[in-house]
Simulated assay, not measured.
Amino acid sequence: MILRIRAVVLLCLLAIVTFFMLPVQLLGLAFDWKIRRFLPRYWHKVACFALGVKVRVHGEIARRRPLMLSANHCSWLDIMVLSSVADVAFIAKTEVADWPIFGTLAKLQKSVFVKREEKRSTGKQANDIAERMAAGEIVVLFPEGTTSDGNRLLPTKSSLYGAAAMALPLAPEGTVYVQPVAIAYTGIQGMPMGRYYRPVVSWPGDVTLPPHLAGLLRVGAVEVDVCFGPPEEYREGVNRKHLASSVERRIRAMLSAKLLGRELP
């Protein structure tokens, strides 16, 4: 009963914050004001607080631009976690735009929706992403192309780094920076999470959203570690598959270290 009351109170708080922030964000999107880039960070901080998600950050976001963050992906919660620590835009599947709640949130954050199955539109979409990166926006890529169970990193797809390649001609120094990021869910109600409890946060896609969200609210306390590794330099002549392999190796190493309670490599 106490957890239910707490959930209702905190969700009401989130609704109030949304009521005041939403009109400002809509205006920011309509007129492309800079506020539309950083306002979502404050909303997601409140959302994480309301959901009982404690975020610990290790390392820091690279300061050089253009910058792409490459992260593992196990849940819709990853979006809120990353957005609470950085002003970012996401590369998402087109289907996400039609999802209830999260589709709307993605649009409000000006996510880039990609039709991966349509080869003819891939070039234009990659160019749109490249232009936004060149304008100083930080773009987040989930190179697995899907969600995992949270206990491992799935094989990544080098083709998804095409936007980074497209941004090279627009980069002032001829270099695009790709930074590996590991998102590790490590604690639940003050105790180590372990493999058994990780389904509380992981969302492989075959579970409907309402019961998954309800389960998270019942828990009321989740800890997540966000690890930023050294960025990779992507420039003319660098093999995209080699870049993808190196980034994948670093994400996997950081993720494994945090899930096992070890020091970062």
Rank of each mutant, 00 (worst) to 15 (best):
L168W: 08
L213N: 03
A164W: 07
Y197R: 10
I16D: 08
L153G: 04
W99F: 12
V88W: 07
L153D: 04
R249E: 15
L213C: 06
D78V: 07
S256P: 00
A130T: 07
V226M: 10
F31D: 01
G136F: 12
D128F: 12
R132H: 09
P172W: 15
A135K: 12
S84E: 05
L259R: 02
M68S: 05
L264H: 05
R65A: 09
R195N: 12
E117R: 04
G59S: 11
P192W: 05
N127Y: 13
V57T: 11
R36C: 10
K115V: 13
A171V: 11
A163Q: 03
R195E: 15
S70G: 08
L141T: 08
L14K: 00
G136T: 14
C227N: 02
V17K: 01
A50W: 01
L213A: 14
D98I: 03
L67S: 04
L209K: 01
A130S: 05
G28V: 07
A184C: 11
V247R: 00
A89V: 11
E236Q: 08
W99S: 02
M254R: 02
A257M: 10
S84W: 01
V96A: 05
Y161G: 08
V112F: 15
H212K: 04
R152W: 10
S148K: 04
C12M: 10
M191P: 00
A62I: 05
I183R: 01
S256N: 12
R262K: 15
W203L: 06
A62V: 12
C48I: 03
W43P: 06
W203V: 01
C74K: 00
G162M: 04
V114Q: 02
R120I: 03
E263V: 02
K93S: 14
R198P: 00
H212V: 08
T122W: 10
E117W: 10
A135S: 15
R63E: 15
K241F: 02
G52F: 02
G237Q: 07
V222M: 07
W99R: 00
Y161H: 14
Y196K: 08
W33C: 06
L243K: 01
R132N: 09
W43K: 07
E232A: 11
G123R: 12
L260F: 12
Q25T: 10
R152M: 13
S121V: 13
V178D: 08
A167E: 11
K115I: 11
T104W: 15
P169Y: 14
V81K: 00
L264Y: 11
H212L: 01
S202D: 10
E233K: 02
F142V: 10
E131Q: 14
E118G: 00
